[in-house]
Simulated assay, not measured.
Amino acid sequence: MVENRRWLTVLAHAVLWLGVLIIVFPVFVTLMASTQSTQQIMVGAISLVPGDSVAHNYWTALTQGATGTSNNAAWKMMLNSAVVAMLIACGKIFLSLLAAYAIIFFALPLRMVWFWLIFLTLMLPVEVRILPTYKVISDLALLDTYTGLSLPLIASATGTLLFRQFFMTLPNELVEAAKIDGAGPFRFFKDVVIPLSKTNIAALFVIQFIYGWNQYLWPLLITTKGEMETIVIGIRKMMADNDSITDWGVVMATTMLAMIPPVLVVIFMQRWFVKGLVDNEK
């Protein structure tokens, strides 16, 4: 029996509100700074109320970018990030579905060995294999391309494990019924497995979209042209490394714009995301 103690409820809510404050306050300060002039920010006079430079900062960020080593417009860099994030998310889902489907529903020789080899790649993130990966992408002339930005990040042992665990819960009667109806492996995959996996697909899509959107090291390494910069790289390059003054108002506005797509993905897919992670009623 769980005791209903008022002080425990108050304490729990206090801890939650404290956590929210710690997370939200830096974002709030960034939002307020994005509405103020660079001069105010440089002298440390950031106000916690909106300033009068909101239109200038956001318009400059969207159309021109801040002065610095990168002056790309935010819309162009956000488009690059969106394309890369979509390619990574969709590619990971597609490959993970196929790999898990083959491991569970096909009597392949040494299939568990192949699964564990895939699983072991979790110990080899892109940072560990970055030099040989760069050499391969360079030899294939894929530098400064969407393919080069996304292809090395598509393979996903995490997604394969997620779908494998779900496919193991599917009853054998589904497979037998599909065989009786004359459905082949592809039709069973398309008409039965994928519709039943939609919540898992949604959950993995949210995770991988944010993962692709926030990529820094790999895009920094293989992009040499300004028009291929992603938003994360662009924000860093907007901060001047020399004696010039960083246009902090525009940088903060660009930072706020960069938060919008991932937040929208989480908001619109929240129900599917939570259901795909915690729902056991398959």
Rank of each mutant, 00 (worst) to 15 (best):
T38S: 12
T9A: 14
A183W: 14
E176P: 06
P185D: 08
H56E: 15
S53N: 10
I118Q: 10
I154Q: 07
S70K: 05
L174F: 14
K275Y: 02
R6W: 11
I260C: 06
I118C: 15
T158S: 14
A203S: 15
A33M: 09
F106D: 02
V266R: 11
I23A: 14
A55S: 12
T133M: 12
Q165A: 14
I201Q: 04
M32G: 01
L161A: 11
K282I: 13
A74N: 08
V192A: 09
F115T: 03
L11T: 13
F268E: 10
K237G: 08
L48D: 08
R164G: 05
S156G: 13
P109I: 07
M252D: 01
D243A: 14
G276N: 04
V136F: 06
S37T: 07
G65S: 06
D247I: 01
S96M: 11
N4Q: 12
G19Q: 03
G159F: 03
V266G: 10
V263Q: 06
T246W: 00
A100D: 04
C90S: 15
Q36V: 02
Q215T: 01
S197K: 04
W116M: 12
I267T: 11
L87H: 07
P195A: 08
E281I: 08
L221Y: 02
N200Y: 11
E281T: 12
V126L: 15
T133R: 01
T147Y: 07
A85F: 04
K275I: 00
S150M: 10
G91P: 08
K275T: 10
E127A: 13
E281H: 12
G68L: 05
V15E: 00
T9V: 13
G91D: 11
D279F: 02
A73H: 09
